[in-house]
Amino acid sequence: MTSTPSLPDPAGAGQPIVLPANGTTVAAEDLQARFVHAADANADMTIDASQVENVGQAMLQLLVAARAHAQAEGLHFAINAPSEAFLARVAACRLGEPLGLEMEKEREQ
C-alpha cells in the first residue's frame, strides 16, 4: 500500500503561527510557505509575535502581504502579544495600520 504524505495543517490546526526571535530573511522564507499554504486553504491566520527580538524588512513585508490577502478574502488575521521590539520596529517603519495594530501614535514617531 502506498501512502501519500499529507501536508501540515495551514495554520497548525488553529494554532498561532509563532514568529521567531530573529525575523531574518531566511526566517521569512520559512514562514512564507506556511502563509501561502494557509492562504491556499482560505484559513484564518493568528500570529504570535511575543518572542520577536529583531524583525527585518522581509518579515514585515510578508506580514503586510499576508494581512492584505486575508482582508481581501474576508479571513481573520491578527498579530497577538507583540513584543516591545516588534512594536518598536513596526512603529519605526510606520506599519501599524497595514498590520492591523493600534499603535500609540506610531510610537510618537
Rank of each mutant, 00 (worst) to 15 (best):
T4M: 02
T4Q: 04
P5V: 06
L7V: 01
L7D: 04
A11E: 09
A11R: 11
G12F: 09
G12Q: 11
A13W: 05
G14A: 06
I17M: 14
P20L: 10
P20H: 09
A21D: 11
A21Q: 15
A21F: 08
G23K: 05
T24V: 06
T25Y: 09
A27L: 04
A27I: 05
A28S: 09
A28K: 02
L31E: 02
L31D: 02
A33W: 07
R34G: 01
R34S: 14
R34D: 14
H37E: 09
H37K: 02
D40W: 00
D40P: 00
M45N: 05
T46M: 12
A49G: 12
A49W: 13
N54F: 15
N54C: 06
V55E: 02
Q57R: 13
A58G: 05
L60V: 10
Q61C: 07
R67P: 03
H69K: 06
Q71F: 00
G74A: 01
L75I: 01
L75F: 00
H76P: 00
H76Q: 02
F77S: 03
A78Q: 14
I79Y: 11
A85Y: 06
V90D: 08
R94A: 12
R94L: 06
G96C: 13
E97D: 13
L101A: 09
L101I: 15
E102K: 12
E104C: 02
